[in-house]
Design a binder for these strands. Sequence first.
DNA 1: CTCGTATTGTACTAATTGTATCATTGTGTG
DNA 2: CACACAATGATACAATTAGTACAATACGAG
Lengths: 140, 140
Amino acid sequence: MTEKQLTLQLDFHSGLPIYTQIVNQIQSQLVNGILKPGDQLPTVRALALELRVNFNTVARAYRILDEARIISTQQGRGTFITEIPPPEVSEKLRNESLLELTDRFIGEATRLGFSEREVSQMVRDRLKTRKEANVQEKDE
Amino acid sequence: MTEKQLTLQLDFHSGLPIYTQIVNQIQSQLVNGILKPGDQLPTVRALALELRVNFNTVARAYRILDEARIISTQQGRGTFITEIPPPEVSEKLRNESLLELTDRFIGEATRLGFSEREVSQMVRDRLKTRKEANVQEKDE
DNA sequence: CTCGTATTGTACTAATTGTATCATTGTGTG
DNA sequence: CACACAATGATACAATTAGTACAATACGAG
């Protein structure tokens, strides 16, 4: 597949900036396996046209994702989902980083009013969904 | 519809503060269906110009309406009548926001090279730790 | 291979929008 | 009159999005 449709749903009144919504949804689609490492994203201009948004807004979203090493933007080439880099960190650091990440996640969810049960349930749910998606893609 | 006229009648001698009149009339128009959820209101400056009033006065009215969750003001974007979704829709949105949050979390963890098992384990662990901490802090 | 051109992302700036803070005005009360 | 307080205005600021010019890359014509 050379071209990805990348269906994004923007809510212009949600309070979340457009660029944030783009960032979130791309990340989400990556987790769900809708987007995979190596996939080419639409050009900033193409996606902007489709979303009826200025291309700089898309560029901003891409830049954020790029800084997070989630995508790789290359001038004159395009934008691609990065291959998952093997994180070469010590076991200790590794654990600490997951702990921090997890605490931040739980903290944010709690702040949004979700109960621990809901958080726990959703994590189970999404991990399961993810696993199933990965099984299917073995066929390709 | 991209632009709303929003005809307001101010009485500068009524004794009622301008901002109160603006608040009242917008609320009234919302009740009467002249304004509908999702509608964009004029910018503070545009409405102020039309009403021959300082834009801070409009901003004050908007802020009051915002605090009452009647409108949603967004810096750099504009001001909109809040969607008042029925509870089940609200529940849906709530779930989607947790879903997105969770997906982002799992995505980051995975990108850092953590397995699903590790993620799952860490979430359980931190939730447990958290719960125990909460029991203690009941004393405060 | 070389060059021109289209395509793609980047950088910088401007425009639009709401926010925060303080000053001014007006009005009522002692 | 003097003071307090509420309403309004002035000014500077911050966030978001858009406009414009530019630079790197790809790619086909010659």
